[in-house]
Amino acid sequence: MTAQIIEKERIGEYKIIPAEVDNTAVLYDKLRSAQRLGNEFKSKTTIVFQTEDGPKRIETTVWSLTDRYIQIKNGVLIPLKSIIKVSL
């Protein structure tokens, strides 16, 4: 799988859709670690998520995590069901 790299500020230009496979349960611990890294160390995480135009990849700080979404800069929410891969 090759994901196109985009600037996190451009996420709003894409329609985010659920990934082929819901990886929420598998990725939740990694996302929790990404949130801790972001809040405590201002460390960035690479996230690949599904859009109507195919997978997109961003490098960002995860500010918060709920049971349904991650929140990144400027209040942007990405549904957990759309996340394909997380790299710390």
Rank of each mutant, 00 (worst) to 15 (best):
F41P: 01
S87P: 01
V62R: 06
M1K: 10
E20D: 14
D53W: 00
N39F: 04
R68H: 12
V86M: 06
L65M: 07
N23R: 15
Y14S: 03
L80Y: 01
E59H: 04
K56Q: 10
I47N: 02
F41A: 13
Q35V: 00
V21I: 15
Q50P: 02
E9I: 10
K8T: 03
N39H: 06
Y14R: 01
I72E: 01
T61P: 02
T51N: 02
I6T: 09
S64C: 05
T51G: 03
D67G: 07
L88W: 11
V76P: 00
M1I: 12
V26W: 04
I17D: 05
F49Y: 03
Q35M: 08
R36D: 15
D67P: 03
A34G: 11
L88M: 14
F49S: 01
G38K: 09
N23K: 15
I47P: 05
I84E: 13
D67Y: 06
I47T: 03
T66K: 07
K85N: 08
D22W: 11
R10M: 12
R68D: 13
S33I: 05
K81R: 10
I72H: 08
Y69G: 01
S64W: 00
P79R: 08
T24I: 14
S43F: 10
G38R: 09
K42R: 13
R57A: 14
G12D: 11
E59N: 12
Q35H: 00
V21T: 13
I5M: 09
D29G: 12
W63Y: 11
K56R: 15
Y69M: 04
T61Q: 13
I58G: 08
G12H: 12
W63Q: 11
V26M: 05
G75N: 10
T61F: 03
N23S: 15
T66A: 00
I6D: 10
I83E: 02
T2A: 06
R10N: 15
I78Q: 04
V26I: 10
T24H: 11
I83A: 00
T66W: 07
T51L: 00
T51Y: 02
E52M: 08
R36M: 14
T60F: 06
Y28K: 14
S64L: 02
I16Y: 01
K44E: 15
K85H: 05
T46D: 10
S87K: 05
L27N: 12
K73T: 12
Q71P: 01
L27C: 15
K56G: 02
K42M: 14
L31N: 11
W63N: 10
I6E: 08
P55M: 07
M1H: 10
R32A: 15
R57I: 03
Q50F: 04
I83T: 06
I84M: 11
I72K: 00
K8I: 04
N39R: 13
A19W: 09
K15C: 07
G54T: 05
